[in-house]
Simulated assay, not measured.
Amino acid sequence: MTGLGAVFRPQLAPERLRAVSRAAEEAGLEELWLWEDCFREGGISTAAAALAWTERLRVGVGLLPVPLRNVAVTAMEAATLHRMFPGRAVLGVGHGVQDWMGQVGARAESPLTLLREHLVALRALLRAERVTSQGRYVRLDDVALDWPPQQAVEVFAGATGPRSLRLAGEAADGTVLTANTPPDGVRRARRLIDEGRAAAGRTGAHKVVVYLLAATGPDAAARVRAELVAEGVEHVPGLGAAGDAQDVAEAVHRLAEAGADTVILQPTGDEPDQEGFVRFAAERVRPLVA
């Protein structure tokens, strides 16, 4: 079955998260995803709060920008969430928006090298390994977690370009694709991810999560188009879904057929009713998604 979730966008004030998380839980939504966008809300702090306010909801963070984070801290925080809320936290890392990274003095000369080193070290630490690394960016000296996760956990990577998609297949357990990825883009991403997996000799499952810009209501089409125009992708076919539950479910199906394991509905930045949006996803779209 195709997984389905929704995004709590960081354009909303942090104090709104409690009500949205509880609405998602009560409606039966499977996953609520959060973003660590500069300079809005912290990914781990919001994830911990959403997990604590709910009992069943899976909470994803997509993504944590690795230039802002020492990998040992990322591992400590990830392990803590997985031990306190087993099976409910989903964490993804990425190289971050380079302009934002430059604003805080964390821009890397080689974002791909940094992401590779971070992924390798992070996954090893979460497997309870003792790690020594003298990489270009990640340097650890005999580091191991005192409280590693008690079960195997997945680490996702955000990727868009060919090299980062191959890296995700090689070094991550899953990939997160942005809402600017149409069905043909998902197929292309799957091929590149599989190339990376083959090069690394990996044969296990690799999950692909795709965001889908979506809106419902009388002004849905105008709101989706305005956001696509702002992103400069209004002429890319297959992006976004506007209309009723059937319209959105059909867009989810197209992404699933292209290779998405989970589709996360992304409301527009001006969504007027975030609680209503998560209920719409859970109660009206979910029954139509096989």
Rank of each mutant, 00 (worst) to 15 (best):
R191M: 11
P272Y: 13
V208S: 08
E129N: 10
V263Q: 01
G243Y: 13
V66S: 04
E227D: 11
A220M: 08
V120P: 10
G28A: 05
A200N: 11
G169L: 05
M84Y: 13
A13T: 09
E31K: 10
L288I: 13
E31R: 15
A256G: 14
L32Y: 11
V285N: 09
A24P: 15
E41G: 06
G240C: 07
E195V: 03
E250L: 10
L34M: 10
G87F: 12
R188A: 10
W53E: 11
R58T: 10
A50G: 15
Q98Y: 10
T46H: 13
R88P: 00
L165H: 04
W100R: 07
P183D: 03
D37E: 11
V71Q: 05
L29C: 00
V104T: 10
L265Y: 02
V120C: 06
P183C: 05
Q134L: 06
V289D: 01
G102I: 03
V61C: 12
A72K: 01
A198W: 14
E195K: 03
V229D: 14
E117Y: 15
V278I: 05
P149M: 06
W33G: 12
A152I: 03
G43S: 09
G43T: 06
E227A: 07
V278W: 04
A242T: 02
A75E: 02
A226F: 12
A282E: 00
A78W: 15
W53G: 02
R130S: 14
Y137I: 03
L140H: 08
R18N: 10
R191L: 12
F39H: 14
P272C: 10
V208C: 05
L112Y: 08
D141K: 09
L213M: 02
D173A: 05
M76D: 13
A251R: 15
V59Q: 09
V248D: 07
G102N: 05
V229I: 15
D247Q: 11
L255D: 11
E234L: 04
V153R: 04
A6H: 04
R88F: 02
A171I: 03
V93E: 07
V209W: 03
W147E: 15
G196W: 11
D142L: 05
V278S: 00
D37Q: 10
A78P: 00
G28E: 04
E109V: 08
E25A: 04
E275K: 01
Q266I: 01
P183N: 11
A27L: 01
A50Q: 12
P287N: 09
T2I: 15
R187W: 06
T54E: 05
P218H: 01
L228P: 12
Q266T: 06
T175R: 00
L68T: 07
E271V: 03
F85H: 15
L51Y: 12
Q134P: 03
A48K: 05
P272M: 12
G96Y: 00
G135V: 07
R284K: 12
G196L: 06
T132M: 10
V289S: 01
H118P: 00
P272W: 14
A47R: 00
A6Y: 06
A108S: 15
D194V: 01
Q151Y: 10
D261N: 14
L288M: 09
E231H: 11
V285W: 14
A144C: 07
L228G: 06
A72I: 01
T74F: 11
